[in-house]
Structure formats: C-alpha cells, structure tokens
C-alpha cells in the first residue's frame, strides 16, 4: 500500500508541477495583451489612466469610439464594454475592478437602453464568454477577482493550475495567439459592413427584453443606485446614454422606459435614439448595433448636442481625486 500511495503522490506531484509551469507561462503570455477578440478586455484597464470610461454591453463596445472622443474633447478615454453582458451587475463589478487597480476616471458614460437589466444576485448569472474569461480564472494569479467570481468558476478551475485553461480549451489560443485582434486600433469594435438582411432578415422584435416585471425593475433600480453611489464615492460624474437601435423593428418595445427610469432616480440621461439615426438601415449592421457609418453619425449627433457636450466638458474639467 505504501508503494501504491507513493506512486500516486509522485504522479500527481509531477502533473501538478507541470500544470503550474504551464499556468505561469500562460499567465505571463497573456498579461496586458489583447488576445482572442475583446471578450476579456477588462485587463486592459490596469495600466491605463483614463478621463472618460465607456461602459455597457456590446452596444457600448461597438458604438463609442474613444479615438473620436479623445480628439474632440482632448481627453483620454477607454471603452470597457463587455460583450454579451447587458446586466448592470457585470458593469458594476468591472468598475469596482477598474477602481481597485487604477485612479478613478473623471467621467463615466454608461450605455443605458432597453437591453439593460440586473439579475439582482438572485438568479443564475449570465455565463456568456465564460470560456474566454477562464484565462484569468486561476485565483492566485487573478487580478480581477470581482469579474472572475461573477462567472462562478468552481474550486478546481480557480485553484488547480492550468485546469481552467484546459477545461475551456483556451491553451492553444494562448500559445499561438492566433486570435489576437487589435481592436484597440481605434479603441472600439469597428464594423464596416452593412446589415446582411438575407442572412439576418429584418423582422419585428416581439419579446420585451427587459423591464418585464416589477421584480426585474426593482432589481435594476437597486443596482443603478449602487452604481451611482460607487461613482459618487469616487467623485466620478455619471452619464447615462441611450444609443440608437433600428427603430422599425423595435416598435413593440418600451423604448422610452430607460429614460423615465433614469430620470426618476435622478440620473443624467441623454436619449440619442433619434429619428435621424434610428430610421436609416444603412447605419446598422444588425438591429441593435451601429456600423462605422452609424457610429460616425451617432458621434456627430452627440457632439452637436450642446447639453451633452457641456456635461462632458464639465465632467472632464475636474481635477483627479487621488
């Protein structure tokens, strides 16, 4: 028996050591690198010092070009959108993670629209792109535990080296860096294409995405107030913006509800889902995402709005609070 146990311990010792070496190598390789699209771009926040942060879901990543803002407002901005996550819970965690590693920004622009929601910490969290985030799941090396913990990695994934990388089959991509995608060329996900209506036909969106119950609204309200409090505690100006959707397919949706909710809770809100933008299919690559043309038009609409510009400028004039 002693020989048997010794063999087992030696074997698992070797496997664990190798796994640890692989984990170290992988963590070193991905540190501060933009790998495999943008689904885990939270780590980009660490070496940054941004005046203006854009936060929100994929509609944030694709709609706000930091380059355009930097040039127009003479500031340093950063797009921290998280693809596939419309829940405010994720964005709050991401903000907390950012603040843990960086000085607070002067201003946050939160993309706030009919897709926004909150799971209220009561139901299963959204696991979209859990595989991509698994590269940071190994807890001893994890720099952003808030976001990582949101995905609910199990003990083996968090504490056994390399396990998460292997389990979610991320290792080949880390080694090859084949999927490296320089999306920060302009700091956002640029889509030059038009809406391919043959592959993805234009059709009415029937189901109400958010705000479908009193409970979901209450959850969202709580999370909004929490988000606001974090901003206030760090002297960050917070601005909520509704970006355009292709309005003809959203006629059944409570498109004005986000504004009512935001104003009711005392948030500054700008609705840019305007007719000049949301009625032209040329501005979109699908029903709720703007293409490059749309982003340009959207930006122009924003900077043509004197109230919006005044708010941004006033936020940016603040001194950094250390």
């Amino acid at each position: 028996m002693r020989r048997f146990l010794k063999q087992i311990f030696v074997f698992f010792g070797i496997v664990s050591s190798l796994a640890f070496i692989i984990q170290c190598a992988a963590s070193y390789r991905i540190k501060n690198r933009e790998v495999l699209h943008l689904y885990d771009n939270f780590h980009l926040s660490y070496p940054q010092r941004a005046d203006l942060l854009f936060m929100g879901s994929s509609r944030c990543i694709t709609h706000y070009s930091p380059k355009k803002f930097d040039e127009f407002f003479h500031c340093k901005s950063l797009n921290l959108g998280v693809d596939g996550h419309s829940e405010l819970d994720m964005h709050l965690l991401k903000l907390l993670s950012y603040l843990k590693h960086n000085l607070p920004p002067k201003l946050i622009l939160l993309n706030f629209d009919i897709f926004i929601n909150s799971n209220g910490n009561e139901v299963e969290t959204n696991k979209v792109h859990k595989d991509y985030f698994s590269r940071y799941a190994f807890r001893p090396f994890s720099e952003s535990t808030e976001v990582i913990d949101y995905f609910g990695y199990n003990l083996a994934e968090k504490y056994f080296p390399s396990y998460a990388l292997l389990h979610y089959q991320m290792l080949p991509a880390i080694i090859s860096m084949k999927g490296e995608y320089k999306w920060r060329f302009e700091g956002y996900e640029r889509h030059d294409e038009n809406w391919d209506t043959l592959s993805h036909p234009v059709k009415l969106i029937d189901s109400i995405i958010s705000f479908n119950s009193e409970k979901s609204i209450n959850n969202l309200k709580k999370k909004m107030l929490l988000f606001k409090k974090v901003c206030e505690d760090h002297h960050i100006s917070l601005l909520l913006v509704q970006s355009p959707v292709y309005q003809p397919v959203f006629t059944n949706q409570p498109i004005k509800f986000p504004e009512a909710l935001a104003r009711n809770l005392g948030f500054t809100f700008f609705d840019f889902n305007r007719n000049t933008l949301n009625s032209q299919i040329e501005n979109f690559y699908n029903a709720n995402h703007l293409n490059t043309r749309g982003v340009g038009a959207f930006f122009q609409t924003m900077v043509n709005d004197s109230n919006f510009c005044a708010f941004i400028r006033s936020g940016l004039q603040k001194k950094y609070v250390n």
Binding site: I14, Y163, L166
Partner: peptide, 12 residues
C-alpha cells in the same frame, strides 16, 4: 501525463 492533460483538455 499526456493522457491526464488530454483528459483535462476535454473535460468540458
């Protein structure tokens, strides 16, 4: 060892 790593890789 190779088989163990193969297993971990396919454990999803």
């Amino acid at each position: 060892i190779l088989l163990v790593f193969l297993l971990l890789y396919h454990s999803g």
